[in-house]
Simulated assay, not measured.
Amino acid sequence: MKKLVLTGAAGRLGSYLREPLSRLCDELVSTDLAEDLGKLYPGESYVKADLQDLDAMVALLEGADMVVHFGAVCDEAPFETLLGPNFIGAYNIWEAAHRNGLRRVVYASSIHAVGMHKKTDFIGIDAPHRPDTFYGLAKCFAEDLASLYWDKRGLESVCMRILSCAQVSNPRAVGSWLSYDDLIHMVERAIDTPITGFSVVYGVSNNDRAPVDNSKAQHLGYRPKDNAEQFAKEIYAEAGPLDPQDPGNTHHGGPFAAVELGNSGVALLNLKEEGNAKS
């Protein structure tokens, strides 16, 4: 592949993807709002650009084969805060990809697009949208945008509904964990699968207690290897009994399903500080 573009390259997940993506193409253009990324990998360049600027996105995607879109505000926030980067930014990426004749958008969607479904329902990739927050609503918008651009303009998309890509630090993550190795594997399959059309896949590892069903995404060849069960005994003992009436314990969105609209969900996840890996 000649050229890939990675948005959100300064973020926690984007930083993990830079090196493996640089090995898949002659030229990797990483972009974010940070002033720089520090050390660049062979074939990688950095362009500071705002997702809300359509002209900047059109220029950024010129000559690219695909764009891997991880740029966004990555938490629940007031709608006005998310409107620019998460809603308009998504439109700008798909529109810029279309104008430049890209083949595919690989998109970091989220379980929060379906976060109000109950975990006991074991939902598949065809579950109807049930966002848990404005953040989840933005993911629904981008997924529908991806579907529209495939149906009307022939632009392929793979929407990866990531569950929990961080260290296992809470009971929910025993089922929802996506390891960094499995994240990289999923993105690679989203890029190298010959034909995807409009596809959805859940970003979750091979956990014994995974609450979602990827059986209708087999064509992508995503076969996760890691399993969070190794952490279960310690995590459950540490957490103690969970309230079965708390939507944060019973719904796919976890704390995002319980917070008031506009309030942070990440603040309730008990995430461990890891820094920006490989940045």
Rank of each mutant, 00 (worst) to 15 (best):
E80G: 06
A113W: 00
N100S: 06
G124W: 09
D65I: 04
V114C: 13
V68F: 09
H112Y: 12
G63V: 07
L54Q: 08
A113Y: 03
V105W: 02
H129V: 01
L61W: 10
K119H: 10
A72T: 04
G115M: 08
L51A: 03
C74L: 14
L60N: 06
G115C: 09
N86K: 01
S109F: 04
N92S: 01
I125F: 05
A108L: 03
L54I: 05
D55T: 05
M116H: 13
M57E: 07
E80Y: 12
H129K: 04
A72Y: 10
P128H: 12
A77S: 10
P78T: 11
W94R: 00
S110H: 07
A56P: 07
G101K: 13
P78N: 15
D121A: 14
E76F: 00
F70T: 10
A97M: 10
H129N: 12
G124I: 09
A97C: 09
G115L: 07
P85H: 06
D53E: 00
K119D: 11
D75W: 01
A113E: 01
R99M: 11
A96K: 04
D121H: 12
V105E: 05
D75R: 06
T120Y: 12
D55Y: 01
L60S: 07
L61R: 09
R130L: 11
L83A: 13
M66N: 09
A97H: 04
G84P: 12
R130P: 04
G101P: 13
G115Q: 08
V106K: 09
L82H: 07
K118D: 14
P131N: 09
L102E: 06
A127W: 11
R104V: 02
P85S: 02
V114L: 11
T81F: 04
H98A: 12
G101I: 09
V58R: 13
V106G: 05
I88G: 00
R104S: 02
E62I: 03
V67W: 09
L102A: 02
R99L: 13
V67I: 11
